[in-house]
Protein backbone atom coordinates (compact mmCIF):
# COMPACT_ATOMS: atom_id res chain seq x y z
CA UNK A 1 0.00 0.00 0.00
CA UNK A 2 1.20 3.46 -0.85
CA UNK A 3 0.25 6.55 1.08
CA UNK A 4 -0.89 9.31 -1.30
CA UNK A 5 -2.23 12.81 -0.65
CA UNK A 6 -5.12 13.50 -2.99
CA UNK A 7 -6.74 16.84 -3.77
CA UNK A 8 -10.06 17.28 -5.50
CA UNK A 9 -11.26 20.20 -7.55
CA UNK A 10 -14.58 21.43 -8.88
CA UNK A 11 -17.19 18.73 -9.48
CA UNK A 12 -14.91 16.08 -7.94
CA UNK A 13 -14.65 18.10 -4.77
CA UNK A 14 -18.42 18.37 -4.76
CA UNK A 15 -18.97 14.66 -5.35
CA UNK A 16 -16.25 13.55 -2.91
CA UNK A 17 -17.57 15.98 -0.32
CA UNK A 18 -14.02 17.00 0.61
CA UNK A 19 -11.17 19.07 -0.76
CA UNK A 20 -8.42 16.60 0.03
CA UNK A 21 -7.72 13.28 1.67
CA UNK A 22 -4.86 11.00 2.49
CA UNK A 23 -5.33 7.49 1.10
CA UNK A 24 -3.48 4.21 1.47
CA UNK A 25 -3.87 2.61 -1.89
CA UNK A 26 -2.76 -0.53 -3.70
CA UNK A 27 -2.83 1.50 -6.95
CA UNK A 28 0.49 1.84 -8.77
CA UNK A 29 -0.59 4.50 -11.26
CA UNK A 30 -2.67 7.66 -11.25
CA UNK A 31 -5.09 5.83 -13.51
CA UNK A 32 -5.65 3.01 -11.05
CA UNK A 33 -5.96 5.48 -8.20
CA UNK A 34 -8.61 7.44 -10.07
CA UNK A 35 -10.58 4.28 -10.81
CA UNK A 36 -10.44 3.33 -7.16
CA UNK A 37 -11.54 6.78 -5.98
CA UNK A 38 -14.24 7.03 -8.66
CA UNK A 39 -15.82 3.89 -7.31
CA UNK A 40 -15.52 5.14 -3.73
CA UNK A 41 -16.97 8.61 -4.34
CA UNK A 42 -19.22 8.04 -7.35
CA UNK A 43 -17.46 10.45 -9.71
CA UNK A 44 -19.50 11.07 -12.86
CA UNK A 45 -16.89 12.77 -15.01
CA UNK A 46 -15.18 10.17 -17.17
CA UNK A 47 -11.47 9.78 -16.71
CA UNK A 48 -10.66 10.78 -20.29
CA UNK A 49 -12.00 14.28 -19.64
CA UNK A 50 -9.87 14.68 -16.51
CA UNK A 51 -6.35 15.91 -15.92
CA UNK A 52 -3.98 14.83 -13.23
CA UNK A 53 -1.04 16.71 -11.76
CA UNK A 54 1.46 15.08 -9.45
CA UNK A 55 3.71 17.13 -7.20
CA UNK A 56 2.85 20.35 -9.00
CA UNK A 57 3.15 19.19 -12.58
CA UNK A 58 0.62 17.93 -15.10
CA UNK A 59 1.41 14.38 -16.12
CA UNK A 60 -0.05 11.31 -17.81
CA UNK A 61 -2.44 9.03 -15.98
CA UNK A 62 0.09 6.25 -16.59
CA UNK A 63 2.49 7.95 -14.23
CA UNK A 64 3.68 5.63 -11.45
CA UNK A 65 2.85 6.70 -7.92
CA UNK A 66 5.42 7.12 -5.17
CA UNK A 67 4.74 7.32 -1.46
CA UNK A 68 3.60 10.77 -0.30
CA UNK A 69 2.98 12.04 -3.80
CA UNK A 70 0.51 14.87 -3.95
CA UNK A 71 -2.01 13.95 -6.61
CA UNK A 72 -4.43 16.58 -7.90
CA UNK A 73 -7.39 15.51 -10.02
CA UNK A 74 -8.74 18.37 -12.11
CA UNK A 75 -11.87 18.38 -14.22
CA UNK A 76 -12.20 21.01 -16.93
CA UNK A 77 -14.32 24.00 -15.91
CA UNK A 78 -15.86 26.61 -18.16
CA UNK A 79 -17.91 28.94 -15.99
CA UNK A 80 -17.47 32.64 -16.37
Amino acid sequence: MTQINVRYYAILREQAGMTHQSVDTPAHTADALFTELSAAHGFTVPRNLMKVAINGEFCDFSRVLNAHDEVVFIPPVAGG
Binding site: A10, I11, E14, V45, L49, P76, G79
Partner: peptide
Protein backbone atom coordinates in the same frame (compact mmCIF):
# COMPACT_ATOMS: atom_id res chain seq x y z
CA UNK B 1 -1.51 21.19 -24.57
CA UNK B 2 -3.38 20.82 -21.29
CA UNK B 3 -6.90 20.07 -22.43
CA UNK B 4 -6.65 18.72 -25.94
CA UNK B 5 -10.34 18.68 -26.72
CA UNK B 6 -13.13 20.94 -25.67
CA UNK B 7 -15.26 19.20 -23.09
CA UNK B 8 -18.83 19.19 -24.34
CA UNK B 9 -20.75 21.84 -22.48
CA UNK B 10 -23.17 20.48 -19.93
CA UNK B 11 -21.03 17.65 -18.62
CA UNK B 12 -19.12 19.39 -15.87
CA UNK B 13 -21.62 22.06 -14.93
CA UNK B 14 -21.93 25.78 -15.62
CA UNK B 15 -22.66 28.85 -13.49
CA UNK B 16 -26.27 28.37 -14.46
CA UNK B 17 -26.53 24.77 -13.31
CA UNK B 18 -23.87 24.54 -10.59
Amino acid sequence: CVWQHATPDGITGTCQTA
